[in-house]
């Protein structure tokens, strides 16, 4: 509970600022409407008018909550209007991308740590890959996937997601696999251990804390990748598609709700990864 108080305080402050912003941003339209109808508007009327618009510039928090509630519980989970349905579509791409990112990140890290040539040749490209704007790359990946005959959107989305998530895993694993100090390496040398024994007995276990720490960043990056994969690519399913449709077809409340739905999904994923991390720490005797 001691941890909850500061968090709740910040949430409270944000909500207050948010309401003030909503009143401020939406008042122009409300005042215009009142003027057109030739009506005088008191402050209370104005506040009410800024919070009940169908197409607000800034949706008020309670409007977002209602839209989110309706999106999650107001429809059958198989309905195209259900956030559960769209959330699942995004989640599926996120998890595939996450898994792919882990495999690529760990695989490259192992190669980099064991071969100087790979280190010199691959590492700079890995860094450069993250400077390419993913929004520009995403449509190309979708188009190429389509051109080679992949009908399903899951694969290109997973690739975009992995493109973002492999990097934190790679960087952490390179550090982690190099974490053993000279003394620990010397010790294994005195046992006449071979390279694979050094890897399995020392480098890999030593890297696990780094690995689990990177997963939290990677899962968030995966989700962003999956959503970006749904935004500029003409997708109609997924939270990213909901955001785009909401903004383009004059349903800002759906856009806001999808945005917060994605944030909540990210929060849940990070909590799950955190729980896995703690369980692993306990298993490894690191947690005290």
């Amino acid at each position: 509970m001691r941890n909850a108080l500061p968090v709740l305080t910040v949430v409270g402050v944000i909500i207050v600022i948010w309401y003030i912003a909503a009143i401020w941003m939406n008042s122009t339209w409300a005042l215009q409407m009142a003027e057109r109808l030739g009506r005088e508007m008191g402050f209370t009327d104005l506040v009410v008018a800024t919070m009940t618009q169908d197409r607000p510039l800034v949706a008020a928090p309670h409007q977002v909550v209602v839209a989110l509630w309706d999106g999650v519980f107001g429809h059958a989970v198989t309905s195209k209007r259900s956030f559960v349905y769209h959330g699942f579509v995004t989640l599926e791409a996120t998890l595939w991308g996450f898994a792919l990112g882990i495999v690529i990140g760990v695989g490259l890290a192992i190669a980099i740590v064991h071969s100087r040539a790979v280190d010199m040749s691959v590492m700079p490209w890995a860094v450069i890959s993250q400077t390419v704007p993913i929004v520009a790359l995403a449509p190309m990946i979708v188009v190429v996937a389509n051109a080679v005959g992949v009908e399903d959107r899951l694969l290109p989305k997973a690739i975009i997601s992995a493109y973002l998530s492999f990097f934190p895993v790679l960087v952490s694993m390179v550090s982690g696999l190099r974490a053993p100090n000279q003394m620990q390496l010397d010790l294994l040398k005195t046992y006449g251990a071979n390279r694979s024994q050094v890897f399995w007995k020392l480098r890999l276990p030593a890297s696990l804390p780094y690995f689990f720490a990177s997963l939290k960043v990677a899962i968030a990056a995966s989700l962003i990748g999956a959503i970006v994969g749904e935004l500029p690519t003409g997708a109609i399913n997924g939270l990213g598609a909901r955001m785009l449709i909401g903004s383009q077809f004059g349903q800002p409340l759906i856009m806001w709700a999808a945005l917060f739905g994605a944030a909540i999904l990210a929060g849940i994923l990070i909590i799950v990864v955190g729980a896995i991390q703690r369980a692993a720490d306990r298993r490894m005797g690191v947690a005290r």
Binding site: M183, D186, T190, P205, G285
Partner: peptide, 16 residues
């Protein structure tokens, strides 16, 4: 494996 070596620090693996 003719010798055992003891370093200045115990250097036990924390995960074992």
């Amino acid at each position: 494996r003719a010798y055992g070596y003891v370093f200045q620090a115990a250097g036990l693996y924390p995960w074992r």
